[in-house]
Design a protein around this nucleic acid. Structure first.
Length: 271
DNA sequence: CCCGATTCCTGTAGGC
DNA sequence: TGCCTACAGGAATCGG
């Protein structure tokens, strides 16, 4: 599924084909995404040229003319640039026909994704305005986590997955970062020390940066082949490894549920 | 404000 | 082998 690294990989992969291109036509075959695709989307976009493609959290922001298309891949969405128009397959919900002969195609089997047009400053959009800092940006560090967590009784894993705290930490990377930093995911966020939040912030950055490198693999078959295989599975230390031996101490990896999400950890290495 | 539960959806893993 | 159910997950939103 698209985590922050894959969204960033998508952005880098499609940006060169979009910048400067004019949107000549829009085909919407399925409007029922996370929020309905408006009937006016084609009119809003057509005739406008793409000026930028940026990422904020897991949102992609395509600015064209007087507005911005806010896109989210949800859990199963993908964006591809096709070299030439091709008949749509299952779950190919939206196409943007570009003036350079290419086509941007949005595919999303589970339809948790989104495509919203806004003429306002996208950063002020209700979906974006309360988002926390980018984990790879300068404002994110251990002190930020520590300050926000004082008095909070929710589990530290739930806390770092809250987009108002820090964006882009999905279920997989939350478990992985907590393992790397030796923190029990069930521990109350307010009971993690300032020092340990420093380690955790570093771990979050490291695990996401490593995953962006792996995203480069996906980049290669971007315009051509199929989607993302499980190429990061082999680097995972705890996620999906319940009952397997901890790579550090040999003890069993345990699974529990926090915030309705499966959570993996090593009882011996994480306190 | 804070926090846990619910909701959207469909491909697929697992059980029988 | 095949069917059926449970589960997976991002994140908004609801309810307490």
């Amino acid at each position: 599924m698209p985590e922050l690294p894959e969204v960033e990989t998508t952005r880098r992969g499609i940006e060169p084909w979009l910048l400067g291109a004019r949107v000549d036509a829009v085909a919407v075959r399925e409007r029922r995404l996370r929020w309905p695709v408006t009937a006016r989307l084609a009119r809003d976009l057509s005739g406008r040229s793409v000026e930028s493609l940026e990422r904020r959290a897991k949102y992609l922001l395509m600015t064209a003319g007087d507005g911005t298309l806010i896109m989210h891949l949800g859990m199963s969405g993908s964006l591809r640039v096709l070299e030439a128009p091709r008949p749509p397959g299952p779950h190919d919900h939206v196409d943007l026909v570009l003036s350079n002969g290419r086509m941007l195609r949005f595919n999303d089997p589970r339809r948790f994704g989104a495509m919203l047009w806004t003429r306002r400053d996208p950063m002020r959009h209700p979906l974006l305005r309360h988002l926390g800092p980018e984990p790879l940006g300068a404002e994110f560090d251990g002190d930020h986590l520590w300050r926000l967590s004082r008095g909070r009784r929710a589990a530290v894993k739930t806390f770092i997955m809250d987009g108002r705290v820090v964006v882009g930490v999905g279920n997989i990377y939350a478990s992985e970062a907590l393992f790397r930093s030796g923190i029990d995911p069930r521990r109350a966020a307010g009971r993690v020390s300032r020092r340990r939040y420093g380690v955790l912030a570093d771990s979050i950055r490291e695990v996401l940066a490593a995953a962006i490198k792996r995203g480069g693999t996906t980049l290669q078959d971007f315009t051509g082949g199929d989607g993302q295989p499980g190429y990061f599975a082999q680097e995972l230390n705890v996620y999906g490894r319940e009952g397997d031996a901890c790579r550090s101490c040999g003890g069993p990896i345990r699974q529990t549920v926090l915030g309705q999400r499966s959570t993996f950890f090593c009882q011996r290495c994480q306190r």
